[in-house]
Structure formats: structure tokens, C-alpha cells
């Protein structure tokens, strides 16, 4: 007798829970110890279900609840169905990197939805009392460069239209990185032991070889 081939079914079981997934963004960095802040969370159903009104929680590594927020409508601009909300958080009181999670578990939706979680990190710092002023100019023309990224350890900001950035940081030794698209990195170590002014010259990135 000839056996009939049994083909695997590719149709999803209509009773399967809908998959969900999360996004977390606009997390301020760094956060001062114990400071209040806001971040954004979004939730997406793989089947495109409307999720306004659903709750997303933020929990720390010990699974303590940090915040809970209800998703609003319409979806986040540019997305096909990411329902989102802001969440108010309080930064931890210890310095360093903290791994938290955004979590969703379905409650009152008609169709069952799978729970989801997403890890994200934030970094906390002591408040600083030393003002470091950084002036950034073009190495060749000596003109101010605005919009340069300035990183002093974990502290970060941008230069203004006068090519100046300032940061308030605790005493210590930091790696200073200054960069703007089209320029090479300028890197040096900086000892901060009081207010300080630093001038940084950025060199243009060399033109790529024309022989390509």
C-alpha cells in the first residue's frame, strides 16, 4: 500500500497567544543618584492588535516594581502599531550601571497575548561640583565647531554654537573624547580637581583613497 505523504501544517493555531514585544527609549544618561526622570516604553502585538490601555511595568534586577504606566494612543510616529507611554522613574541610589526590564503580561485582552520583557540599562552618577568647560575648534581653520559630541567619562553633552560645552562632574580622572561626524576623535585623559577649561582641536578625517 502506498503511503500518503503528510505535509506539516504551516497555519498558526488560531488559539495561539499573540506574540508581543517591547521597546524602551529616551532614557536620560547619566542619571544623578535618586533623581526623577522619564523614559518611554512601547508595546507591539505581532498581529497588530490595538494595545492602548494596557499596562507596562518597569522592574529592577531584584524584580522590584519601579514604575507602571498605561499605554496611550495613537501608536508612536513611524511605527505600524507600537502603543506607548511615558514612565516616571526614580534613579537608584547606588552608582553604576543598572539593568532593568520593561515587562508586559496580558490581563484584560479578549485574545490571549504572550507576556514579554525587554532588558535595558541605565547609568547613575554622583552629582558633580566641578565645572569643566570644553572649547572645540577646527585644527586647521581655528573656527568653533558646534554640535560636537563631548564625553567626559560617562558624562556627555554637545558643544553650542560657540563651540563650547560644559559639564559638572565629581573630582577624578576621566577620559575625554570629543568627536563630530567628519572629524577624527580627540582623546585625552583629564584630571579634574576643581573647575577646569580645556581647548580641543579636531582634525578632519582624511579623505578616503580616490583609488577605488
Amino acid at each position: 500500500m502506498k503511503h500518503r505523504e503528510v505535509l506539516p501544517l504551516s497555519v498558526q493555531n488560531p488559539e495561539s497567544p499573540h506574540e508581543t514585544s517591547l521597546a524602551v527609549w529616551d532614557i536620560p544618561s547619566p542619571l544623578r543618584l535618586g533623581s526623577s526622570a522619564k523614559l518611554k516604553v512601547g508595546l507591539r502585538c505581532a498581529n497588530g492588535c490595538p494595545l492602548a490601555g494596557q499596562q507596562v511595568e518597569i522592574r529592577n534586577a531584584a524584580q522590584d516594581k519601579i514604575a507602571a504606566t498605561k499605554l496611550g494612543s495613537p501608536p508612536w510616529p513611524g511605527t505600524t502599531g507600537l502603543y506607548w507611554a511615558e514612565a516616571d522613574i526614580i534613579a537608584p541610589l547606588s552608582e553604576g550601571t543598572h539593568v532593568w526590564t520593561a515587562q508586559f503580561s496580558s490581563s484584560d485582552l479578549e485574545i490571549e497575548h504572550s507576556p514579554s520583557s525587554l532588558p535595558f540599562s541605565l547609568i547613575t552618577v554622583k552629582p558633580g561640583d566641578n565645572r569643566v568647560t570644553i572649547e572645540v575648534v577646527d585644527e586647521r581653520t581655528k573656527t568653533f565647531i558646534d554640535g560636537s559630541e563631548v564625553r567626559l567619562g560617562v558624562f556627555r553633552t554637545l558643544t553650542n554654537t560657540n563651540g563650547v560645552a560644559s559639564l559638572e562632574v565629581p573630582r577624578g580622572t576621566y577620559e575625554l573624547n570629543v568627536w563630530k561626524m567628519g572629524y577624527e576623535f580627540a582623546t585625552r585623559n583629564v584630571e579634574v580637581d576643581g573647575d577646569l577649561s580645556i581647548k580641543v582641536e579636531l582634525a578632519l578625517e582624511p579623505e578616503p583613497s580616490p583609488f577605488i
Binding site: 521597546a23 524602551v24 527609549w25 532614557i27 544618561s29 508612536w76 513611524g78 564625553r151 582623546t187
Partner: peptide, 10 residues
């Protein structure tokens, strides 16, 4: 070198 930008915003 000094990674600058998070990948976070949808």
C-alpha cells in the same frame, strides 16, 4: 572608540 549613540528609538 567611545560608542556614541544608543539603538533605542523605534
Amino acid at each position: 572608540p567611545a560608542p556614541m549613540y544608543k539603538i533605542q528609538k523605534p
